[in-house]
Computed example of a mutant assay.
Amino acid sequence: MTMYRPRGRLLTSRRQVLGLAAGTAGGALLRPPPLLAQSPMAGSLRAQPRRLAPIAESDALVAFGHTGPVTDGGWTTAHDRGVRAVRQAFPRLRTVYVESIPYSADATRIFRQFVAEGAQMVIATSNYGDFIRDVSDRAPDVAFMECDGHGVSGNLGWYYITHWYASYVIGIAAGLMTRTNKIGFVGSFPIPSVYAGANAVLLGARSVNPAATLQAISINAWFDPQAATQAGTALAENGCDFLCGIMDEPGYLRVAQQRGIKAAMWNTDMRQYGPDAYVSSVVLDFRAYYVRQVAARLAGTWQAQPHFLTLGHGVDRDSWGRTVPPDIAARADAMRERILAGYNPFRGPIRDAAGRLRVPDGAVMDDDRIYQWDWPVEGVSGLD
């Protein structure tokens, strides 16, 4: 595998997020939903998909554009595992990647470089918007995929993870384990993936503990260990005894370990950095999904489409930490099993932080609506 290093600054801000997680993470699955649930949201945006010619494995080049370093231990590490799975599945195929692609014209230059090098498939592991769309429009015979994208064209599709269900399940554990009723959340930016994560945690917590609240701190970065540690410390000093968030590294988990409180993480299993504090993680695993997409491109059957990767087939909770009481784990997992069987817990009435009714009684927020969540629910502070 070849790595190109882009010129310019390394990225500290990034995508809105995604994944494909280990279906074995903590128990048997009950009638899981389809691996790829097509989103109707982008249906009106979708152009007629182009039929791209098949490619011999020995002639194929697949390029990956990453938003952070592959050694971050979180988001980009999870994607890099997917890249390695592709290499293992197709040993004669070539892969290249670039780390820490900035959200600037440099991104366009790098994606163009992939095409110039002969890549027949380009996968951006974050949302690069017009920076990738401008390139895909000019390379109609190349397949483009954008994680957390929003537009679909003849040769550009997007994919994302329904991480909010795993966050809801972990939120149930948080609601049962907190003694102060204060949950702390370390976020990056006030964007839909962060709102969805924070809101899901608190809604899960309030389903078992109506007194629970969630205080968020945004650090304007996805990978900034110092800032995440400072935010976790501030939340703990404000009385939060359960920390969670949507970071790419374990800064606030270390804070929880030092202070004797609990924490839930994101992206990967990070319990080694705080074994007594670790409750679980929203875990991502892109391996099967990437292998499937590359196989389709080689066969000439790939089509640009919008897809959600679903609970148990793209994202899940990690196995519970060693200090999580079995009865609490069982109560949280009862909801996980209901979701796997088709239940949606995001149902009204749901009010925003100002008390306004946003989801009426009896209404349900589907994945498309959650994917675009841009307001904090009642009880969440620090994001609006």
Rank of each mutant, 00 (worst) to 15 (best):
D366C: 06
I123W: 14
W375K: 14
P210S: 06
P250E: 13
A231C: 05
I183M: 06
E99M: 07
A330D: 10
Y278Q: 11
I132F: 06
V115G: 03
D333A: 08
G232A: 11
I328Q: 07
L309D: 06
A341C: 08
R356D: 15
G251E: 02
P32Y: 04
A216R: 10
T268S: 15
F185D: 09
V364E: 15
D241S: 03
M41L: 15
M247Y: 00
G382I: 09
Y165T: 02
D368G: 15
L29W: 07
V142G: 12
G19C: 08
V122H: 10
W320I: 02
G355C: 07
A216W: 09
T77F: 11
V135N: 14
Y128R: 06
S280Q: 03
P69T: 06
E146N: 13
A263V: 11
A296W: 00
P190F: 00
V282W: 00
G348N: 13
A264Y: 13
P326T: 10
R31Q: 13
V380T: 04
R94Q: 15
I261R: 08
F223M: 05
D352I: 01
A139D: 00
T71C: 03
R87H: 13
S104K: 00
F185R: 01
N220S: 13
T229D: 00
Y4C: 04
A124R: 02
I123A: 04
P49M: 08
L284A: 10
G260A: 14
L61T: 08
A85Q: 04
W375S: 09
D241C: 05
N209A: 06
P225D: 09
A211S: 09
V324L: 10
R259S: 13
F185T: 00
P32M: 08
E237F: 07
R14L: 13
E249V: 11
I55G: 07
E117M: 11
A53V: 10
S280V: 02
D367V: 12
F242K: 03
L202V: 07
A37H: 03
A227D: 01
N220G: 00
M177R: 01
L214E: 01
G348R: 13
S281M: 03
P360I: 01
G197R: 01
R317E: 09
T301W: 08
Q257L: 11
R5C: 09
S39F: 08
G184R: 03
A263N: 11
A143W: 07
F131R: 08
A231H: 09
P360H: 02
S104P: 07
D106H: 08
G348L: 13
F286G: 11
A174Y: 02
T162N: 05
L243P: 06
R112M: 01
I110H: 13
N267M: 07
Q113C: 04
I370V: 14
N127G: 01
S319L: 07
L202Q: 11
A196T: 07
